[in-house]
């Protein structure tokens, strides 16, 4: 393994206290080498999102250490942490988090704007990043006028623009149909391969996880060598249903109109099924606050 870009030592994160105490992470030790692609795999409530937030310096641990390029980050000031996140990390989220009334270019250059880069240089680097993702012709479009796949490419361009050493991708294909997912995955792994950007993917999608160089399995806040067979994959997130998406859909993508923008979005069968189910089920409260009992089948490693 190359020199670790991210390391953790006995990482513990506890939410709440007393009756509501919830140990999200119970002492995680791991190393992520420079240029590696790592999948953090686990069900909802397994602590994978918490782990990503701690690695990405979005949150501080209750105990333990996160070190970036060998430097412990625990005693850095809020300002230093902000600058570090701005310069060293790129973020790709399941939801695109594009600012709706701004142009694609403005969205892509947001990290540079926050860093205080002058406007002319922002534009140049923004167009460069969009060029890489073959989106340069959409630079002046409103972010809302794009399809789901295009939006995710804009998001990747935004994550790339500051030449990060690590890209954190939280369910990067969660909102995309399988064909688009594959394109986005190819882009991410291409960046990892060609530019040596470390890729940390948080997912419950076993197919995506398998494309990564290494998988870290999390169960109830602890790293396990492998997920127990009995869980039949890692589909717990979608209400116990096996959530693995067929690698290639035989029935073809389903197209729906996105309510906010009117854009046509192509959905996979799994997503369509989820939408249908969500429409029938009442919303589940506190999904992220604590694991529901149905989400913990055979946690013993």
């Amino acid at each position: 393994m190359a020199a670790p870009v991210l390391e953790t030592e006995n990482l513990v994160k506890i939410y709440g206290r007393g009756d509501t105490r919830f140990d999200a992470l119970k002492g995680i030790n791991l190393e992520i080498g420079k240029g590696e692609s790592v999948a953090v795999v686990g069900k909802s409530g397994s602590g994978k999102s918490t782990l990503m937030h701690l690695l990405a310096l979005l949150d501080g641990p209750t105990h333990g250490v996160v070190a970036l390029e060998g430097r412990p980050t625990g005693d850095l000031s809020a300002k230093e942490l902000n600058e570090l996140r701005n310069s060293a990390f790129g973020f790709v989220f399941q939801q695109f988090f594009l600012t709706p009334n701004q142009s694609v270019l403005e969205n892509v250059t947001l990290p540079l704007k926050i860093a205080g880069v002058p406007a002319a240089e922002r534009k140049r680097r923004g167009l460069e990043a969009l060029e890489q993702l073959e989106m340069a012709d959409k630079a002046d479009n409103k972010a809302t006028d794009l399809s789901g796949g295009q939006k995710q490419r804009v998001v990747i361009a935004r994550a790339l623009i500051n030449n990060p050493s690590v890209i954190f991708a939280d369910e990067p294909t969660g909102n995309l149909d399988s064909a688009t997912s594959k394109v986005v995955e190819d882009i991410l792994f291409g960046l990892n391969r060609d530019k040596g950007i470390t890729l940390v993917v948080v997912t419950h999608d076993e197919d995506l996880a398998q494309r990564c160089g290494r998988q870290i399995y999390l169960v109830d806040g602890e790293v396990v060598p492998n997920l127990p067979k009995s869980t039949s994959g890692v589909g717990g997130e979608r209400g116990g249903q096996p959530g693995t998406r067929p690698a290639s859909s035989t029935t073809g993508p389903l197209q729906v109109t996105e309510p906010t923008t009117g854009a046509i979005v192509t959905l996979s069968e799994a997503d369509a099924a989820e939408i249908a189910r969500a429409a029938q089920e009442p919303p589940r409260a506190g999904r992220h606050a604590a694991p529901s009992t149905t989400d913990q089948p055979g946690a013993t490693a």
């Binding site: 990405a56 902000n82 996140r85 701005n86 310069s87 973020f91 947001l110 926050i114 860093a115």
Partner: peptide
């Protein structure tokens, strides 16, 4: 998002 991207 802005805060995640390093805005104070």
């Amino acid at each position: 998002l802005m805060k995640a991207l390093g805005m104070s």
